[in-house]
Design a protein around this nucleic acid. Structure first.
Lengths: 122, 122
DNA sequence: AGTAATACATCACAAATCTATGTATTATAT
DNA sequence: ATATAATACATAGATTTGTGATGTATTACT
């Protein structure tokens, strides 16, 4: 027999995360060198104080796509009979991380002007 | 005969805007009381230094949805033979603006922790 | 023994925006 | 005068991303 955890509603409207998930993953892999999927979801949960709860259906496909795109590679490891896929950034993934985070930072600055009425000359 | 402007590629990856477009519109209407669609797209272009270029296909449907949801109302005005739809925030739209901007600000703080490694205790 | 947590996966679906169109008026430059 | 650019709205199909609902299986805790 197997069981399901109850579904916990994420704090933010679903759309906000869009476009930022890969940035989050890229940065975590850059900071920690080597992580597996479940570990990533737990770290994100912890760092966000349970506000960002990555779903399996978001995380694993994202990691698969990043693998296909050559941004990360993985090695399988067995903990007993249970498999873990440890992901690491490739050089291309590291470049992507740099340009993507720069773009995200810039976008957030723009948002501060558009939505929080910060002056452009700050 | 009619003509089309060339397509100018927006600076940011398309996905980043998701979930923030309505926040942008809500805030602009809150700041300016009364705006029409084309005006909104121009202000956004200007405030973002040409980095956020709202497409007709994004903006007008968004305004229509916000109207349907009771967040805004509009009045038509004719400038010569050309129509303008001036939008204003409803009380409901104003409430939505407040809660949504709060959520967005909080999300951006969370992103700073997740992506830019800010400490949680700042 | 039963439940919760760990650890992966897939797929139909929803939501939002984009791209490509369409129509029409008015201003500007040549 | 006339071609172009800017103004001002609109819709529809395609795309993208993350969700929700499943599925399978092992290990830890109570």
């Amino acid at each position: 027999m197997y069981y399901y955890s109850i579904y916990i509603c994420p704090m933010y409207s679903k759309e906000l995360l869009k476009g930022t998930l890969s940035a989050i993953i890229l940065n975590l892999l850059s900071e920690n060198k080597r992580m597996y999927g479940y570990e990533i979801s737990q770290i994100v949960k912890e760092l966000s104080d349970d506000k960002v709860l990555l779903k399996d259906g978001s995380l694993y496909p994202a990691l698969q796509k990043m693998t296909k795109d050559g941004l990360v590679t993985f090695e399988e490891e067995y903990i007993g009979k249970r498999v873990r896929k440890y992901y690491t950034l490739t050089p291309k993934g590291n470049e992507e991380k740099i340009t993507y985070l720069k773009e995200l930072k810039d976008f957030m600055a723009t948002l501060n002007v558009l939505v929080f009425n910060e002056t452009k000359f700050a």
